[in-house]
């Protein structure tokens, strides 16, 4: 078994008076991909938004529990530092419309006021785009606007943007839900590659996607963690009746 990188204990999330997550406890292992699966409204997006502290952006939201990264509870850390270590890619690709492809990759550095030399910048851009599998498609027009790319390319640009920050964990929130099958396949292949460098947590309601690309799967239902385990085992011999029913397509 691999090393634990993220240890989540008794995570509860609230919005106003409504509890969205109930006592979720699980681990993520480094350089593995974990799927968070469940019917809509089960709290899976809220769950990963808690991990990089995006859930608390709304003042009406609250989080309790522990999310331990390198022996530190991220909930006690500065949320900004947490977000630099844990990157996020959203449902809809959202490259910055005012920036070129090159600047989009470097956006994390630019916006945070971290200075880099020209050579360092070029290296980061090439490295991140290569890891995101986009380098060969865009290397000749790095100074065009990122929004001119196709949907799948934009999504990979967003992945490169996160990788450029040397994140350890990459959260993917249904990254392929707005993409065509071809672009989806591209991203799925990419996830396999990305595991060499980062730990991946992917939210999906596409069961076959979870089965294809992940090593572990967590099944959430109504804010509670129903089952967590190796993807293969969870899909073939689910321990919990509810998981079985969900996989059989009986609800969700």
């Amino acid at each position: 078994m691999s090393n634990k990188i993220l240890d989540i204990k008794n995570l509860n999330a609230f919005y106003q008076n409504h509890q969205i997550l109930h006592d979720v406890t699980l681990n993520f292992f480094s350089n593995k991909a974990t799927a968070i699966m469940g019917p809509s409204g089960c709290g899976k997006t809220t769950f990963i938004r808690c991990i990089n502290r995006m859930h608390e952006l709304d003042p009406k939201a609250k989080v309790t529990g522990e999310i331990i990264l390198h022996n530190q509870n991220t909930l006690d850390m500065d949320s900004i530092l947490v977000r630099r270590k844990i990157g996020m890619v959203f449902q809809r690709a959202n490259p910055f419309p005012t920036m070129s492809i090159y600047d989009n990759v470097l956006a994390g550095y630019k916006l945070n006021g971290i200075k880099k030399s020209r050579d360092e910048k070029d290296e980061i851009v090439q490295d991140s785009l290569e890891k995101a599998g986009l380098w060969h498609e865009v290397k000749d027009f790095l100074h065009r606007k990122g929004t001119l790319l196709s949907g799948g390319q934009q999504q990979r640009l967003c992945i490169a943007r996160s990788l450029a920050m040397k994140t350890e964990i990459l959260l993917l929130d249904e990254p392929t839900s707005a993409l065509d099958p071809y672009a989806t396949a591209n991203i799925e292949e990419l996830i396999e590659e990305l595991k060499k460098d980062v730990t991946i947590i992917i939210v999906t309601h596409n069961m076959s996607q979870a089965a294809r690309v992940t090593d572990y799967t967590a099944f959430l239902y109504e804010g509670k963690l129903i089952e967590f385990g190796e993807t293969e085992k969870l899909f073939t011999v689910p321990k919990h009746k509810m998981t079985e029913e969900y996989l059989a397509g009986r609800f969700g």
Binding site: N52, M54, R84, M88, F90, N94, P97, G108, L111, N112
Partner: peptide, 20 residues
């Protein structure tokens, strides 16, 4: 989503507002 993309990169709130 644009605001969130920036925040998720660890860019502080007001910097996001002014620069993105």
């Amino acid at each position: 989503t644009l605001k969130e993309a920036s925040l998720a990169l660890g860019v502080p709130h007001y910097t996001t507002l002014f620069k993105i």
